[in-house]
Design a protein around this nucleic acid. Structure first.
Length: 605
DNA sequence: GCCAACGTTGGC
DNA sequence: GCCAACGTTGGC
């Protein structure tokens, strides 16, 4: 691509311009214009160019697409002076600077000769050896010795913590939580299919070849279905679906569950029109497949009715196949459109991805969606890289995008799995907790005992709330919220990387629950849990299909992470998703806590 | 093997 | 035209 850069004398010496044609997709053939500044900054639009050059530079005569100046008359020569970047930077709009927590891109980016020259001349505002501000802790530190690009904005300590956390995540993915009863079993049972087959206990393959009795419950649990639907009740494979027709691998059980045996709740509620509100699933009766009375199961495992006798808050995550996602566009398939994260309209403005955004003053290097808005389903999918829809193992679906050079994408293509519910977790707030705790039994998984939950009630006032009719009301019309009813955000221990090894020091993260009934004892005070410093910025508008959910979604915004001052809040699940690791203990923001729920003020530090 | 960086594309 | 963010890839 660098070879495509051509000089752009209209902008001045050192400026380059490039026209990139889109080679695929719906906009194939369309071209984008990019500029490269003398200092190596890439400009993608006229707005960015204006921002870069500063308000003093009038670009009205500059044809961004053509890269030329358009003079209405010879007399009106209005040269686009391109001052040196050293002069430009200070004139950057304040918007760009308002939340720059880390060093400016130009300060540390690419140790190009130009940068070195700047530093050498002493005219640059910041040299590579100038002290920077750690993006995480805010402490000043010297850039000396920070030659690696990665994690360059972190100080030495924070960088080490981040690396350690990532390492821990990877380890967890391989070996399990290490805390559940299954993980604590030291010896193989010798009788399960894995033991009988004497398959290698390959740690790297996670659960694949692990004794069935030793598989992490926190992972296995999430592969359970509802237990009551027709899919869950079907005992035998159909033998006709695409899963059954896949050739099996010798010696290894099939990983994918027969299509006819997959949980209907996942199937009918997670897709397309019915998929928008995953949290509604268990509040809606209609989507459930009718079951003959005689067929109703005698629940022996995790059962909805057992766990949710008092209309508790619920949270369901599904593991979905890509081809069963609501979108046909692959780029959109990263969002289920139903989970709390997808329903969230506002960027938190505080996570590393938000800080990277230009609108928050970032340098637009990461270009990722706010961590709080990254689809939870995919986070869960990544959490279970080898469990598939259940205990079935072995089969590997062919890559869905054969054109990709690297099917091992860290996001989605590791392990396509079924849409069977990974977990049906019930959190009865208030008095219901005790009963649920008892009913959960050995088949369910409780959160770490030191987990704290903080409820944020829908509709509470918040600087982040999306204006809307229901935003100001905490009591949304019931019929409108037929399924959503009261929505809750549950703040859980934060999984901020640097805190990962010290759970007792975790700060708040957020997961989202819905409850059909506002339980007594639940805190209604959410203001304390909302970061007042969040910067109101332009946010993604609700899609047409999402409008109806808008009111419900307000609570999501109200649950903005508490961070920065009291502990940077990077979302629990999305953190793991984004960082490419697995730490179910942390990621399981959906895990119910049996202890008392605390009010935000009691939680925040 | 992981992930930061960034080319690229979708959508408004 | 612009922005958001997906998906790839090279550095580590």
């Amino acid at each position: 691509m660098a070879g495509d850069w051509q000089d752009c004398p209209a902008l001045g010496p050192g400026w380059k311009r490039r026209e990139a044609f889109r080679k695929s997709g719906a906009s194939c053939g369309r071209s984008d214009i990019y500029y490269l500044s003398p200092t190596g900054d890439k400009i993608r639009s006229k707005v960015e160019l204006t921002r870069y050059l500063g308000p003093a530079c009038d670009l009205t005569l500059f044809d961004f697409r053509q890269g030329i100046l358009c003079y209405p008359a010879p007399k009106t020569h209005h040269p686009v002076t391109v001052p040196s970047k050293q002069k430009k930077k200070p004139s950057k709009p304040s918007k760009v600077k308002k939340r720059q927590v880390g060093p400016q891109k130009s300060e540390v980016k690419k140790e190009t000769p130009q940068d070195e020259n700047k530093a050498g001349t002493g005219t640059a505002p910041a040299s590579l050896s100038a002290p920077g501000c750690c993006e995480n802790c805010g402490n000043h530190f010297s850039w000396d010795g920070v030659k690696r690009q990665r994690l360059k904005t972190l100080c030495k300590d924070c960088r080490a913590q981040r690396i350690a956390f990532n390492r821990e995540q990877r380890m967890f993915r391989r070996v399990g939580c290490g805390e559940c009863t299954a993980c604590l079993v030291k010896e193989d049972c010798g009788t399960c299919s894995i033991c009988r087959l004497q398959l290698p206990h390959d740690v790297a393959s996670g659960l694949f070849c692990k004794c069935e009795q030793r598989r992490c419950l926190r992972i296995v649990e999430k592969s359970r279905g509802c237990g009551v639907c027709r899919g869950c009740q079907t005992q035998e494979d159909c033998g006709r679906c695409r899963v059954c027709l896949r050739p099996s691998r010798p010696g290894v059980k099939r990983q994918w569950r027969c299509m006819q045996r997959r949980c209907f709740w996942g199937k009918h509620n997670c897709r397309k029109s019915g998929s928008k509100v995953a949290a509604q699933h268990h509040s809606q009766a209609q989507p459930r497949p009718p079951l003959p009375a005689s067929k109703h199961p005698k629940p022996t495992e995790l059962h909805i009715s057992d766990l949710a006798p008092t209309s508790p808050a619920e949270l369901i995550y599904y593991c979905v196949d890509e081809d069963e996602l609501p979108y046909t566009n692959h780029r959109q398939n990263r969002k289920c459109g139903a989970c709390a994260a997808c329903l969230r309209r506002m960027d938190c403005g505080h996570c590393d991805f938000c800080c990277d955004k230009p609108k928050f003053g970032g340098s637009n290097q990461k270009r990722q969606k706010c961590r709080w808005r990254q689809c939870l389903q995919f986070a869960m999918k990544r959490l279970l890289p080898s469990t598939g829809s259940g205990s079935e193992e072995g089969a590997v679906s062919p890559p869905r995008h054969p054109c990709r050079k690297r099917p091992r994408s860290r996001q989605l293509h590791v392990s396509p799995s079924s849409k069977a519910p990974l977990a049906v977790l019930t959190i009865p707030p208030g008095p219901a907790q005790a009963s649920a705790k008892q009913q959960v039994g050995r088949d369910s998984v409780l959160p770490p005992p030191d987990t704290d939950l903080v409820f944020l009630r829908e509709g509470a006032s918040s600087p982040l709330q999306v204006p809307g009719p229901a935003a100001a009301s905490s009591e949304a019309p019931l019929q409108e919220a037929q399924c959503s009813a009261q929505s809750w955000a549950v703040t859980l221990p934060q999984v901020k990387q640097e805190k990962a090894d010290a759970p007792e020091e975790w700060t708040a993260g957020t997961a989202f629950l819905t409850s059909s009934t506002l339980q007594p004892g639940c805190p209604s005070n959410v203001e304390e849990a909302v970061d007042p410093d969040l910067v109101p910025v332009k946010q993604e508008p609700a899609g047409p299909e999402e409008d109806r959910e808008e009111n419900r979604q307000d609570f999501v915004s109200a649950s903005a992470p508490e961070e920065e001052t009291g502990g940077v809040g990077t979302p629990v699940i999305t953190e793991i998703f984004s960082l490419g690791g697995t730490r179910l203990r942390d990621a399981a923001a959906w895990l119910p806590r049996s202890k008392d729920f605390k009010k935000p003020e009691a939680k925040m530090q």
